[in-house]
C-alpha cells in the first residue's frame, strides 16, 4: 500500500487498509525504542512543529520522543509561549510558522475542526493531536495497536467504552477505528454522557455498565473531567463511581483475559478502581509505549508525502544537476 495523505485529521476519513497500514508500520517502529541507541536517521533534516494550544503532558511528550527517535528537528510551541496571547489569530501564527519552512505540524486545539482548517490553509502536513471533543486519531491508533499486540487481532473483539462519551474525542476516534477493522463497540454511561444518534456510528449503547462489560475483550474507561462538574451531567462523582466505576467485581463480568485500558490521566477511584488500574489485566502502560511507536509511524508516513518537501527536494536536485553540468 502507498500512503497518500498529507494530513492525519481523524479516523473517520481513513479506510480500513490505511488504519492497518499505520498499525503495521508502527509495529516495525516498536523495535527502535528497545535498541541501545534509540534513534534512527529517517527524518534527519526535517522540521516538525508541536503546536499545542491546550494543556497536555503525555501526548506532547510522546510526540516529542517519537520525533527525536526519528532524528527530526523539533520546535515546541504551547499556548503560554505563543504570541496568540498577544492577540495574534491562529491563522497568522500558523502562517508564520510555516513560512519558516517546516515539514509537519502536530496540533492540539481545544476546538473541534481547528486542525482541519489549518490543513486546508497550509502546505505542510497536519496531524491532529486532539481537537476539542472531535477526534484524537493517534490515541485511537495506539489503543488499537495495544489491543492487536495483546489479542493478536482486532476483528471480532468486543470493546466496551465506559464514561463521558459526549465529551470524549478518544471515544469518537476509537469508535471509528475499531468498527472499521471489524470490532464491535459498546458504549456505556448515563444518558447525559451519551450524545444523540450515536448508534449511527455503529455502536451499541448500554446504560448499565454491567451489560456493557459482559463478555467484553477490552474495557476502556474514560476520564471523568472534573471541570465539567456543576453542569448537571451527573449528580456527583460519588454517584458516578457507584453506578459506572470499574471495580474488580464488575470486571469479572467481562472475559477472564479482558484488557483494561485508559487514555489517562486516571482519576483513581472514580472511573477506575486502583486495584483494576494496577491489576494484571491493565495494559495502561503498554498504551503509553505503543503511543511512541504509533506517532513515529505517523510522522514517518506523513513526512514522506509533504508536497512541499518533495518539490523542495526536486528543485534542489535540478539545481545540483545544473551546477554539475556547468
Amino acid at each position: 500500500m502507498n500512503w497518500k495523505r498529507k494530513d492525519l485529521l481523524g479516523l473517520e476519513e481513513l479506510k480500513k487498509e490505511e488504519i492497518e497500514f499505520v498499525l503495521d508500520t508502527a509495529d516495525s517502529f516498536r523495535e527502535i525504542s528497545t535498541r541501545a541507541i534509540r534513534k534512527v536517521p529517517a527524518l534527519r533534516g526535517r522540521t516538525i512543529v508541536l503546536f499545542f494550544l491546550e494543556a497536555s503532558t503525555r501526548t506532547r511528550v510522546s510526540f516529542e520522543l517519537a520525533a527525536k527517535r526519528l532524528s527530526a528537528d523539533l520546535v515546541n510551541i504551547s499556548s503560554s509561549t505563543s504570541s496568540m496571547l498577544k492577540g495574534e489569530t491562529l491563522k497568522d501564527t500558523i502562517r508564520n510558522i510555516t513560512a519558516m519552512e517546516v515539514d509537519l505540524v502536530i496540533v492540539r486545539h481545544g476546538m473541534a475542526g481547528a486542525p482541519h482548517w489549518l490543513a486546508r490553509e497550509i502546505e505542510p502536513g497536519v496531524v491532529n493531536a486532539g481537537d476539542g471533543c472531535h477526534e484524537h486519531p493517534t490515541q485511537a491508533l495506539l489503543d488499537m495497536l495495544t489491543i492487536r499486540e495483546k489479542k493478536k487481532k482486532l476483528e471480532g473483539l468486543r470493546v466496551a467504552i465506559v464514561g463521558d462519551i459526549s465529551h470524549s474525542r478518544v471515544a469518537r476516534s476509537n469508535i471509528w477505528g475499531l468498527t472499521k477493522v471489524g470490532a464491535s463497540v459498546v458504549v456505556a454511561g448515563p444518558p447525559t454522557f451519551i450524545p444523540p444518534c450515536i448508534e449511527k456510528m455503529g455502536v451499541t449503547v448500554k446504560y448499565r455498565v454491567e451489560e456493557a462489560l459482559e463478555g467484553a475483550d477490552v474495557v476502556m474507561a474514560l476520564r471523568i473531567q472534573r471541570e465539567r462538574q456543576g453542569k448537571n451531567l451527573i449528580p456527583s462523582l460519588r454517584e458516578y463511581r457507584k453506578i459506572f466505576g470499574i471495580s474488580r467485581e464488575r470486571l469479572r463480568l467481562s472475559k477472564p483475559d479482558a484488557l483494561v485500558m485508559h487514555p489517562g490521566p486516571i482519576n483513581r477511584g472514580i472511573e477506575l478502581d486502583p486495584d483494576v488500574a494496577d491489576g494484571p489485566q491493565s495494559v495502561i502502560l503498554d498504551q503509553v509505549t505503543s503511543g511512541v511507536a504509533v506517532r513515529m509511524a505517523v510522522m514517518y508516513l506523513l513526512c514522506g508525502v509533504g508536497k512541499e518537501a518533495i518539490s523542495r527536494q526536486l528543485s534542489a536536485v535540478s539545481k545540483k544537476q545544473k551546477a554539475e553540468s556547468l
Binding site: 473517520e12 473541534a112 476539542g132 471533543c133 459526549s166 465529551h167 469518537r172 450524545p195 444523540p196 450515536i198
Partner: peptide
Amino acid sequence: EGYVSTVLGL
C-alpha cells in the same frame, strides 16, 4: 444537536 454534532464533537 444531532448525529452531526455527535460526530464532530461540537
